[in-house]
């Protein structure tokens, strides 16, 4: 039986806080407030490539399953699509201000929240814009109908839904095909991360209220509120095994939760500063975390059912 443990540590991976992390074919991609994106290979986390191009801090880096592309957003109001094999930006999209991103499960689209609404130019309400990866143009837009800054978006693994969380605590799920919106009540403070379970049936939301809410997607109802973090919950990721999910927080902790019981089964406290992002690899056997302490950490996670 495996246990949760630290596998690798890369101190000073960036010259400043690291804000985002994603896996692509066994490599890690990180984005930092130092404006750079770096690729890390192997257990030793060798820095194999650095992508410069963003002028300001990189807010989000995401990857798609084929491993061809990575996509990043920055405070300089740019979204860049990177060809990972060539190491070059294949597309640059102006999107002011783009926040966190998510690839559609088929890898063709990239969704991001925005304050600027392309559908209704007259209203200053938050919207979720979906860009074509190849075209670089807005292909679809969902209006959250609330005056809020959308901090996070997530596609459901089956591609049916797109969820968004806003700075005022609002959470909405859109039906991608019909654009029908379901609003979820429960948070009054910034929702910084949303994530669907692998079966696309439940939505997890992380908030500055220190709690994680678990919703039933179909019913649009709150199932449970999970206490445990001592400060803002910044990031969530569901393990591809479908058994657990992880949360990270300003309290420097990373918690592993069991989806069946909704209980916390493990806590890591390895970072010296807030943990901005976490990501499971494709197998769920590894979890990576990045923090304002400039470091990257990778943990091994048991993937069998007997925990």
């Amino acid at each position: 039986m495996q246990a949760y443990r630290v596998q690798s540590v890369k101190e000073e991976a960036h010259s400043d806080g690291v804000w985002s992390v994603a896996w692509s074919k066994g490599s890690l991609i990180t984005g930092s407030v130092d404006a750079s994106i770096k690729i890390w290979k192997g257990e030793a986390l060798e820095n194999s490539q650095t992508f410069d191009g963003h002028r300001l801090g990189v807010i989000s880096v995401v990857t798609e399953k084929s491993g061809k592309y990575a996509c990043s957003s920055s405070m300089d109001s740019m979204i860049r699509v990177w060809d990972l094999s060539k190491g070059t930006a294949v597309n640059t999209i102006e999107a002011a201000p783009a926040w966190t991103l998510d690839f559609s499960p088929d890898g063709r689209f990239i969704a991001t929240g925005s304050q600027v609404n392309k559908c209704h130019r007259s209203a200053n309400t938050g919207s979720v814009n979906v860009y074509g990866v190849e075209s670089g143009k807005i292909e679809q837009s969902f209006d959250i109908q609330k005056k809020t800054f959308i901090l996070t978006v997530a596609y459901s693994p089956n591609g049916r839904y797109l969820a968004a969380g806003g700075q005022d605590g609002s959470v909405a799920i859109f039906d991608v095909a019909t654009s029908v919106k379901t609003s979820l009540e429960g948070h009054s403070m910034s929702v910084r991360s949303v994530a669907f379970t692998t079966d696309s049936e439940r939505l997890l939301t992380a908030s500055d209220d220190k709690h994680i809410n678990v919703y039933d997607v179909k019913q649009g109802a709150l199932i449970k509120t999970l206490s445990g973090h001592g400060s803002f919950v910044l990031s969530l990721d569901v393990s591809p095994t479908g058994l657990t999910f992880a949360s990270s927080s300003t309290d420097r902790q990373i918690k592993i939760w069991e989806l069946s019981t909704l209980e916390c089964i493990h806590t890591f406290e390895e970072h010296k500063d807030q943990v901005w992002d976490i990501a499971y690899d494709e197998t769920g056997a590894k979890l990576a975390s990045v923090s304002d302490d400039h470091s990257i950490r990778v943990y091994t996670c048991p993937t069998d059912t007997s925990k």
Partner: peptide
């Protein structure tokens, strides 16, 4: 710049930070 960026990361809706 770095500090402001960190502040914006926390509360991007505050225009004064931008």
């Amino acid at each position: 710049e770095k500090i402001l960026e960190k502040a914006i990361r926390l509360e991007p809706n505050r225009l004064v930070l931008w």
